[in-house]
Lab assay of single mutants.
Amino acid sequence: STGEEYIAVGDFTAQQVGDLTFKKGEILLVIEKKPDGWWIAKDAKGNEGLVPRTYLEPYS
């Protein structure tokens, strides 16, 4: 699937089932941008889950 690459600007630990845990500096592939501010993203290992958009910045 296609998506946009974003870099994590902080650590995030999953708070509920379906969230994706990530560390600062990780590159995430954003698959869907939901209007509530929680985006669906995939990490380098292929894990998929919800992430808070405030922790992400476009990666170029």
Rank of each mutant, 00 (worst) to 15 (best):
F12N: 12
A44D: 05
E26K: 04
Q15V: 09
P35I: 04
G10N: 12
F12K: 14
A44L: 09
V30P: 03
G10K: 14
L56F: 14
G49K: 01
K34Q: 09
A8I: 02
V51Y: 00
G18F: 03
A41K: 00
A14Y: 04
F22Y: 11
W38L: 15
S60E: 12
T2Q: 06
D19T: 15
G37F: 12
P35R: 09
W39R: 01
K23E: 13
E4T: 11
T2S: 06
A41S: 07
T13P: 13
G49S: 01
L29I: 07
D19G: 15
Y55V: 14
A8V: 06
V51C: 08
Q16F: 06
E48Q: 14
D11G: 08
G10C: 09
E48H: 15
I31P: 02
G10R: 14
L50P: 13
Y55Q: 15
E26Y: 07
G25T: 08
V30S: 03
K23A: 12
E26H: 11
E26A: 12
W38R: 15
F22W: 03
K34L: 07
Y59E: 11
E48C: 05
E5G: 03
S1Q: 13
L20V: 03
E4W: 06
D19H: 14
G25L: 03
A44Y: 10
I27A: 05
E5L: 03
N47C: 07
N47S: 13
P58H: 06
G18E: 11
K42I: 04
S1W: 01
E32P: 01
A14F: 02
S60V: 07
L50I: 10
P52V: 07
Q16V: 05
E26F: 04
G37T: 10
K45H: 13
P35F: 04
G25P: 00
K42C: 05
I7K: 07
G10V: 09
E4R: 07
Y6I: 01
W38D: 15
P35Y: 07
N47Y: 04
E4D: 04
I31T: 08
S60N: 06
F22K: 00
V30Q: 01
V51D: 00
K24F: 03
R53N: 10
E57Y: 01
L20Q: 02
D19N: 15
Y6C: 03
L50W: 03
I40F: 06
V9R: 10
F22D: 00
T21E: 11
P35N: 15
W39C: 15
E32D: 04
G49L: 02
